[in-house]
Simulated scan of single mutants.
Amino acid sequence: MSESPILFHSPTSPYVRKVMVLLHETDQLASVTLHGVTLTPVNPSAEVNQHNPAGKIPALRLDDGSVLHDSRVILDYFDHQHGGEPLIPRDGATRWRRLTLASLADAVLDAAILVRYETFLRPEDKRWDDWVLGQCSKIDRALESFEAAADELDERFDVAAISAVCALGYLDFRMPGLNWRRDCPKLAAWYASASQRPSVRATAPTA
């Protein structure tokens, strides 16, 4: 009898959260074993490093011992394991558009996490304000683009919507003073609705 895949997991990681939302949406949560880890760039996990040389989560160890890493790869893997409508379109212009929106959401996460590292982990006397401003500018540009694409996000809850809802949730969690809703009312309305999905509520990060 094969073992269930093992997902290296932290409830505060927005990249892990994307995978968890998809598992909820596709009713696959029971088929995965969660293995909790805590790590930062200055406090890596030897166990994670053993399976993912980049030292990042999520990482997914399959029953044959092979390991997948990067949330986008793991999302694609799990999207091929269920019998429902794919959450990552398989081909055509829709595929590329939805993956591009998902990539933009990941860019928000990348920038927000860099801000988090700079303002929380780095000693105060070594912080670089211009660096933080540069990352915040990336976030602002991406949110402006998502505001224009809010109707597209509302079309279906797929890889684009999952990625966006997790990115916005992370902004609220780690950058609560950003007040992005003021400048993005359509996006805020979409997020308010999407946040009520059981999969999103069940995976919300807590301090």
Results as ranks from 00 to 15, higher is better:
Leu121Asp: 04
Ala167Met: 07
Ala160Trp: 02
Met20Asn: 06
Ile113Gln: 13
Arg197Val: 00
Ile162Trp: 00
Gly134Gln: 09
Asp63Val: 10
Phe173Leu: 09
Glu85Lys: 14
Ser103Ile: 05
Asp110Leu: 11
Phe146His: 01
Lys186Met: 09
Ser66Thr: 15
Phe146Lys: 00
Lys18Ala: 07
Phe157His: 13
Ala192Pro: 03
Tyr15Val: 10
Thr206Asn: 11
Val73Asp: 10
Ala160Phe: 02
Ala202Glu: 12
Trp128Leu: 15
Pro5Gln: 07
Arg156Met: 08
Asp183Met: 05
Gly169Trp: 04
Arg90His: 03
Ala149Arg: 02
Ser195Glu: 05
Arg17Ala: 04
Gly36Tyr: 10
Gly83Arg: 07
Ser71Phe: 07
Arg127Thr: 11
Ser103Leu: 11
Thr203Leu: 11
Val115Ile: 15
Ile88Ser: 14
Asp106Glu: 15
Glu147Asp: 12
Leu29Met: 13
Ser31Gly: 06
Ala204Arg: 07
Asp64Ala: 06
Arg122Ile: 15
Ala204Val: 10
Phe157Cys: 05
Asn43Lys: 15
Leu178His: 04
Ser137Asn: 12
Tyr15Phe: 15
Ala54Ile: 04
Ser145Phe: 11
Ser31His: 11
Arg122Lys: 14
Leu133Met: 13
Asp79Cys: 15
Arg90Cys: 01
Ile139Gly: 00
Ala188Glu: 09
Ala161Pro: 08
Ala59His: 09
Leu68Glu: 12
Arg122Phe: 05
Pro185Asp: 02
Ser10Ile: 13
Lys186Cys: 04
Glu147Gly: 04
Phe78Asn: 13
Glu124Thr: 10
Ala148Tyr: 03
Arg122Gly: 06
Val165Ala: 00
Gly83Pro: 02
